[in-house]
Amino acid sequence: MDITYENTQREVRTDQGVIRYHEAGDGPPLLLLHGSGIGVSGWRNYRGNLAVFAEHFHCYVIEFPGFGISDPVPGAHPVLAAVDSVIRFMDALGIDNAPLVGNSMGGVVAVNVAVKHPDRISKIISIGGVGTGIFSANPSEGTRLLQEFADSPSREALIRWLNCMVYDPKTVTQDIIDERWDLANNPESQQALKAMYGSESFALQQQFMANSPTPPYWAMLHKVKCPTLLAWGKDDRQCPPDMAMMPLRLIPDSELHIFPKCGHWVMIEAKQAFERVSLEFLRR
């Protein structure tokens, strides 16, 4: 299957701006949700997996608002804007119900959508991200490096963070560095990163959560009713694998697969194994 950026790129207009996405394949719908981070996009998260999934599903790789590709939602926190955009996207394309694959922040978005709209989500595959640390340091090494970049962007800080994302440093090629740096310089992408990881914003978020009467999202994981696969890299330094214990215990119909010699980017570093496990789960 010929999967290229140009022949899969689409856009749809919603009541809160244009959402851009990539589309490929036939069959039942499957939505793929990207993570946060420096110079991130849905295409960069899933371009290597799209051809395999598209053999079985009608795939939609959503570009979340405010990351430099889809229209931003003014004043909205990137995660909250992303949660809302999934339902807006499904409504705009007439998708009643679908499974979600979410990398890191995309997994957090997926479980939030499933809690708020349980009838719209049939299954979830969360690649890291969901839950909170039990034994590991908080913030994690990866989050501290994101804060460093958000506070003072530089190519060197980008490279330090990229190397933290993977088990094998050879995964971080010059092409990946260049394309990440290019999008990281987009003002919308910088604003989203600063809103999530900048030292000032991060401190305010921590203070808000400590004093908020609303429980954190991970305290609501028991409300996720659909089958959920937690896919984790054993050597994840962004979201260490002890984080998986909370969603594994709280989500009623959940299972965990840990991939050895693999960092945060499971769909990239453990590509074939991840695709095999995911397809078995989705087609079960």
Rank of each mutant, 00 (worst) to 15 (best):
Y167V: 01
P28G: 10
A210R: 10
V52I: 13
W161Y: 13
A51W: 06
V86I: 06
L204I: 13
D236P: 07
D235A: 14
P29D: 08
F208W: 08
G133L: 03
L250V: 08
L158E: 05
F135K: 12
H58N: 14
V266W: 00
G128W: 03
T173Q: 11
L162N: 12
A184D: 02
E156A: 14
P29W: 06
G48D: 06
P213Q: 12
V111M: 00
V109C: 02
A76Q: 11
G37F: 05
H257Y: 15
I134E: 14
N49L: 10
L230Y: 09
D96I: 07
N7M: 10
V113Q: 06
A92D: 04
Q191M: 12
P78H: 11
D235R: 09
I62E: 07
F202R: 10
L30N: 04
L193Y: 01
E179H: 12
L80K: 13
T228S: 14
H56E: 13
W181V: 10
S254R: 04
R155K: 15
V109N: 01
D168Q: 02
E280Y: 14
N45K: 05
I127D: 05
R276I: 09
I125V: 12
F208H: 05
L162C: 14
V52T: 13
R13Q: 15
A81I: 04
Y217V: 10
V113D: 00
A98N: 01
G107S: 00
K261E: 12
G131I: 04
W218N: 06
A219T: 12
P187R: 00
H264P: 02
R20L: 06
G37E: 05
A82P: 00
S152A: 11
M1N: 13
A24P: 02
I251Q: 05
A195G: 07
V79F: 13
D91T: 15
